[in-house]
Amino acid sequence: MAQEKRGWDRNQMAARAARELEDGFYVNLGIGIPTLVANHIPDGMDVTLQSENGMLGMGPFPYPGDEDPDLINAGKQTITTLDKSSFFDSATSFAMIRGGHIDLSILGAMEVAENGDIANWMIPGKMVKGMGGAMDLVAGVKRCIAVFDHTNKRGEPKFLKACTLPLTGQNCIDMVITDLGVFAREGAQRRFRLKEMAPDVTVDEIRSKTEADVVYE
């Protein structure tokens, strides 16, 4: 049954995630939709982006001809510095992350469970890539937001009662932003609550595409 695509697109999801930023925040953005959040930082808001390969104060992509092979982000893309930038080694970088000094991590997910578990690094028997810094980020950063399409390519829910894939972290996701809506919880022992819906999306549609036990009123 062909369905018209409703809800937010990738850029709108990133824009919604950007509304969680606060002045003075140090933020780590994952690869994919989370990277787009950088394009939606409100004017006048002071947000410092951390790149886990060893940089605070990540600047925009360079102009053609200005690329420096010694200056890349965690996605291995060429980037630039800002006046406030600093460089450091990987142990210091993860001291920031693990030590709770980063205010917010926005990352992609393959699955999120109603208890805040996240799986985003491995499909058994399929790909051999590795977790990179994802396990350290979800374990150490103060607040973690998962941004992902509400269902997979087969239309099956990705916001589940329990993750089926190998976990990246336990009970660590505070907010879920999908193409259909926003779900948040107040603390690690609380249930996720539907907070917002994308335009033209109904509660019934979200219910039918969500396996997690979510508070809807």
């Binding site: 886990e52 080694d89 990987s90 142990a91 970088s93 993860f94 992350i97 693990r98 590795g130 977790m131 990179g132 810094g133 994802a134 396990m135 350290d136 150490g140």
Partner: peptide
């Protein structure tokens, strides 16, 4: 042997 990046660094 996969190690989380921060664990490997530490």
């Amino acid at each position: 042997e996969f190690n989380p990046q921060g664990t490997l660094a530490e």
